[in-house]
Structures are given as C-alpha cells and as structure tokens.
Simulated scan of single mutants.
Amino acid sequence: MTVTTVAHYRFPPAAREAVLERLLPVAQTTRDEPGLKYFHILETPSEEGHLILIEGWKDQEALARHRERPHFRDGLLGSVVPLLYERSVHISTPAFEEQFS
C-alpha cells in the first residue's frame, strides 16, 4: 500500500537559502531511492519560511529504509532540521487506493 508523507518545514525567512542549499542534495539522493513513487518540495508564497515536502513510497518498508539512509539521518536530520523552528510530518495511506490508483 502506498505511503505518503507530508512534511511542513518552517524556518526564519532569512534562513531560506541555507535551508534550500542543505536540502537539495538530500532531495536529489532521495529521488533515486528504490520504492519512491513521487517527491515534491513546494514553497508557500503566502507564508515566507515554509516548505511542504510530499513523498509517496511504495510501502511502509520503503519509507523505513529511507529513514535509515545516511542522507536522511545526517543530511536531513543533522543538517537541515537544525535550521528549522518547526517540523511536522504526517504519514498517511490512501482511503480508496484500489479505486484511484
């Protein structure tokens, strides 16, 4: 079953360039991972200092493997997250996957 994560990253607007600079290599490596179906990073024009990351994984195991990889642990958690003042991650699965896949 597809697993989707929606993460909200909030940071001081002055930290935008540093956040994006550190996030880019993590995103590039993540896009090459087996089990990844889609990955989007969106900015919120109405709210400076807010990114939304949307990831779709083949299943829970693929997501779990992603969270064990060095670019997630060291790159994201170790380098990007310290620049944030808030990070929320929501994990969901489709209510009607068979009808809308």
Rank of each mutant, 00 (worst) to 15 (best):
M1F: 06
M1Y: 07
M1D: 11
M1V: 10
T2W: 11
T5P: 03
V6T: 15
H8C: 10
H8N: 11
H8D: 09
Y9A: 09
F11H: 03
F11R: 03
P13T: 03
P13K: 07
P13C: 02
P13G: 06
A14S: 15
A15R: 14
A15M: 14
E17C: 08
E17H: 06
A18F: 00
V19H: 04
V19C: 08
L20F: 05
L20D: 09
E21T: 15
L23S: 08
L23Q: 04
L23P: 10
L23H: 07
L24H: 12
P25H: 01
P25S: 02
P25V: 01
P25C: 00
A27Q: 11
A27F: 09
Q28F: 00
T29C: 00
T29M: 07
T29L: 13
R31S: 04
R31A: 10
P34K: 08
P34A: 08
G35A: 00
G35R: 01
L36K: 07
H40V: 08
H40S: 12
L42A: 13
L42N: 14
E43G: 12
T44P: 02
T44H: 13
P45W: 02
P45Q: 00
S46M: 10
S46L: 14
S46V: 12
G49P: 01
G49M: 05
H50S: 09
H50E: 06
L51G: 02
I52H: 05
L53I: 15
L53V: 15
L53D: 10
I54Y: 09
I54T: 14
E55D: 14
G56D: 02
G56K: 05
W57A: 10
K58N: 05
K58W: 07
K58C: 03
D59P: 02
Q60W: 09
E61W: 09
E61G: 04
A62E: 11
A62W: 05
A64D: 10
R65H: 13
R65F: 13
H66V: 04
R67Q: 15
E68L: 07
P70A: 11
P70S: 09
H71C: 06
H71K: 06
H71A: 02
F72G: 01
R73H: 09
G75L: 00
G75H: 01
G75I: 02
L76I: 04
L77V: 04
V80I: 00
V81S: 03
V81L: 13
L84C: 01
L84T: 03
E86L: 10
E86I: 05
R87Y: 10
S88R: 15
V89Q: 09
H90Y: 11
I91D: 09
I91S: 12
I91C: 07
T93G: 14
T93L: 10
P94K: 03
P94L: 11
P94V: 04
A95Q: 14
F96W: 14
F96C: 09
E97Y: 07
E98Y: 03
E98A: 12
E98F: 02
Q99N: 08
Q99F: 15
F100G: 00
F100P: 06
F100V: 14
S101T: 04
S101W: 03
